[in-house]
C-alpha cells in the first residue's frame, strides 16, 4: 500500500467503481461511479488543494461525498461545508445529475488507529457523516449508517480488502506523495521523450500529461506542479544529470560538455547504448529518495557506497540491469 493514505483509498474506490478485477464490485453493482468536482462549489476559507471526490449512482439516486483523512482528526470546516450545499447548487455547479443528487450524504474514511478521535469529530458534525475505518482486513462502517441500507450493508460487518494488492495506478501520485512515487512515474516519461529525440520539454507539459491534472483544483495543480518540478530538479542535478538538465522550467537533453560520455555526436544522451546505464542511475536515484523518505529503513548497501555505474559495467551486458533491479528493490 502507498504511504499516501488518501490516494490509496481513492484508488481503491476508483477500482471498485470501475470493475477492476481483484477488488469488490459491490459499489459498481449499485451503480456508483466516480465523479470529481474541481470547481463550481464556493467553499470559502477551506483548503482547496484536493478536488471533491464523489461516488454517485443514478440507480440508487444517491451521491456520497467522500472525505479521506490519514490524520487523527478531521477539520470540522471540511465537513460543515456540506451543510450549506443545496441540490440546485450541485446540479448547476457540478456534473452531477438530477437523479444522482436526489439524496446525498458524506462519508469520512480514516484509519482504525484514529477511531476515537474521528468518532468525536463525526459526532460533533452537523452533517452526521458516515465513518468508515480502514482495518487490516478491509473497510468497516463504524458510525452513522447511510440512508441507503444496501450501501450500509456493503461495509457491514466488513468490506474485505487485500491492502497488499489494491490498485494504486489510477492516480499514481498527488502533491502529497513521496518523491519515489513521483520520480517513478515522471522519469520514464522524460526518458521516453528524450529517447525519441525530443528536447526542450516544458515542465508544464509534463504536468498536463498527468491524470490528476484535470481532475484537481487550481490549488492542487499549483502544488502538483511544484512537486513535479522539485523532483525533476533533484533528478537532473543528481543521478540523471548525464541525461537531462532543468533550465528554468524546461527540460533539456544533457550537453556533451563536462566530459559527459553519454551525450554528443549529435545524438540524444538517452539512446539504445546508454539505456542500461541510465537504468542503473535511475535505480540509484530511487534508492536515494527512498532512503530520504524512510531513514530508518535498513538497507543492505548505503546509497553512497553503491558502485559507480560506469565502473566496470559493460553497457551491453545484461548484468547491468540485474544490478539496477537489486538496487531498486
Amino acid at each position: 500500500m502507498s504511504s499516501n493514505f488518501r490516494l490509496s483509498v481513492v484508488n481503491l474506490l476508483l477500482g471498485m467503481c470501475r470493475g477492476t478485477p481483484g477488488v469488490s464490485g459491490a459499489l459498481r453493482g449499485m451503480g456508483y461511479r466516480d465523479v470529481w468536482i474541481n470547481s463550481g462549489l464556493t467553499w470559502d476559507g477551506q483548503d482547496r488543494s484536493h478536488p471533491v471526490f464523489v461516488l454517485a449512482s443514478r440507480e440508487t439516486r444517491h451521491s456520497l461525498f467522500v472525505e479521506v483523512t490519514g490524520s487523527p482528526e478531521i477539520d470540522p470546516g471540511r465537513l460543515e461545508r456540506y451543510t450549506r450545499l443545496t441540490a440546485v447548487e450541485l446540479r448547476q455547479g457540478t456534473r452531477l445529475s438530477r437523479e444522482q443528487t436526489e439524496t446525498y450524504g458524506v462519508a469520512v474514511i480514516g484509519r482504525h488507529d484514529h477511531r476515537e478521535t474521528l468518532r468525536a469529530c463525526v459526532a460533533e458534525s452537523g452533517v452526521r457523516p458516515a465513518l468508515i475505518l480502514k482495518t487490516a482486513d478491509g473497510l468497516v462502517l463504524d458510525a452513522n449508517p447511510f440512508v441507503k441500507a444496501a450501501l450500509t450493508n456493503i461495509f457491514r460487518p466488513l468490506l474485505p480488502v487485500d491492502w497488499q494488492t489494491v490498485p494504486l495506478s489510477w492516480i499514481p501520485f498527488d502533491h502529497e506523495s513521496g518523491s519515489v512515487e513521483i520520480a517513478g512515474v515522471i522519469v520514464p516519461e522524460v526518458v521516453r521523450r528524450l529517447l525519441h529525440g525530443e528536447s526542450g520539454i516544458e515542465v508544464d507539459d509534463v504536468c498536463r500529461r498527468q491524470v490528476l491534472w484535470r481532475l484537481t483544483t487550481d490549488t492542487g495543480r499549483r502544488k502538483l506542479r511544484e512537486r513535479i518540478r522539485e523532483v525533476l530538479a533533484d533528478a537532473a542535478s543528481g543521478e540523471m544529470r548525464r541525461y537531462f538538465a532543468l533550465h528554468g522550467d524546461v527540460i533539456e537533453a544533457a550537453a556533451p560538455e563536462d566530459g559527459n560520455p553519454e551525450a554528443g555526436e549529435g545524438k540524444s544522451p538517452v539512446n539504445p547504448r546508454t539505456l542500461r546505464i541510465a537504468s542503473i542511475r535511475f535505480a540509484r536515484l530511487m534508492a536515494r529518495l527512498r532512503e530520504l523518505e524512510q531513514p530508518d529503513r535498513v538497507s543492505d548497501t548505503p546509497v553512497d557506497q553503491l558502485d559507480d555505474p560506469l565502473d566496470g559495467v559493460d553497457p551491453d551486458s545484461s548484468s547491468a540491469s540485474t544490478r539496477a533491479s537489486s538496487e531498486g528493490s
Binding site: 477492476t20 470529481w36 470547481s39 456534473r95 495506478s169 489510477w170 490528476l212 491534472w213 481532475l215
Partner: peptide, 14 residues
C-alpha cells in the same frame, strides 16, 4: 486512463 474536460472526468479501465 486519461482525464478530460475543464470540470475533469476520468476515463479508462485497468
Amino acid at each position: 486512463v486519461s482525464s478530460e474536460g475543464e470540470q475533469g472526468s476520468l476515463s479508462g479501465r485497468s
